[in-house]
């Protein structure tokens, strides 16, 4: 797989939602924080948020970059161009996402990005009979084509697909991936939230069940080493096992990333280990 980054388009008007989607609360975090956190977990390159000029964004992880789209309101191609330009010299491919997909799963992102072979410019999922241009992977080389389309005022993604080598991925194609079929069988990764009712339904869903393991004094004090707790974020997982995420504690996500970021998004299939920060002898 080529070096991949991610672009999250945050500058939409959110007119049907009634308030900016990026800042919508999501179980102690925000939609944008969650989506940027999930794509950051899914790609090995940078994550860029494209905002509208002057748009106030909620707090983000320090490594997430933000670029302002000076020509807002011209649709996703405009945002795509701004994102590709910002990220382009560092990666070969970018996963592009909207802000309003809180059920996005890292295995979905990896499945889409991983399908981008040398002969393909765009990996475009088609789910429920709809193309998903904001849950798709784009080769960075497309920037010049996108700019040409914008200059010609051809602002619909369909115009880009006409001029690109597109790999269409059906639901069956996507679910050939065993991990995706296990962790997101309904492909809720692309379920976006347009209206308040969508948001409220999604927000009411039960949190992923996260196996949490504790080590050292954290285990002996709690009287148990393993618990399963519902948690949308690392902070919720810590609260679920009564661990304070202070300077004396760190967590390992899936035996890999070391963190104590309480807003780190969790998804089904994750495991969390809490251990004392004074690791070592």
């Amino acid at each position: 797989m080529a070096q991949a980054g991610a672009i999250v388009l945050a500058g939409g008007k959110s007119s049907r939602m009634g308030s900016p989607k990026a800042a919508l609360e999501w179980h102690g975090s925000t939609l944008l924080r969650r989506v940027t956190g999930i794509v950051a977990r899914s790609v090995d390159g940078p994550v860029v948020v494209v905002s509208a000029a002057g748009q106030a964004l909620p707090a983000l992880d320090g490594e997430v970059e933000v670029v302002a789209d000076e020509r807002e309101g011209r649709g996703p191609l405009q945002g795509l161009a701004a994102g590709l330009a910002a990220i382009g010299d560092r990666v070969d491919v970018a996963y592009v996402s909207s802000t309003d997909v809180p059920l996005l799963h890292p295995v979905f992102v990896r499945r889409v990005v991983g399908a981008l072979e040398d002969t393909v410019d765009v990996v475009l999922p088609e789910i429920g009979g709809f193309r998903q241009p904001l849950s798709a992977a784009y080769r960075i080389d497309l920037l010049s084509t996108v700019e040409e389309l914008i200059a010609a005022d051809r602002m619909r993604p369909a115009f880009l697909f006409e001029r690109s080598r597109v790999l269409h991925m059906s639901e069956d194609d996507l679910l050939e991936d065993v991990a995706l079929a296990r962790l997101d069988p309904a492909l809720a990764s692309v379920s976006n939230l347009n209206e308040r009712a969508d948001y409220e339904r999604a927000h009411a869903l039960p949190a992923p069940e996260i196996p949490v393991e504790m080590f050292g004094p954290l285990a002996t004090r709690s009287g148990t080493r393993r618990q399963i707790v519902p948690a949308w974020s690392l902070g919720a997982a810590a609260a679920g096992v009564h661990v304070a995420l202070d300077e004396h504690v760190v967590a390992a996500l899936n035996g890999d990333k070391i963190t104590r970021d309480p807003e780190l998004p969790l998804v089904s299939g994750d495991t969390v280990a809490f251990m004392v920060a004074d690791a070592g002898g």
Partner: peptide
Amino acid sequence: LGTMANLLAFNAI
């Protein structure tokens, strides 16, 4: 627990 506490934590990561 002493430094023995490292063992299972290190195994997990």
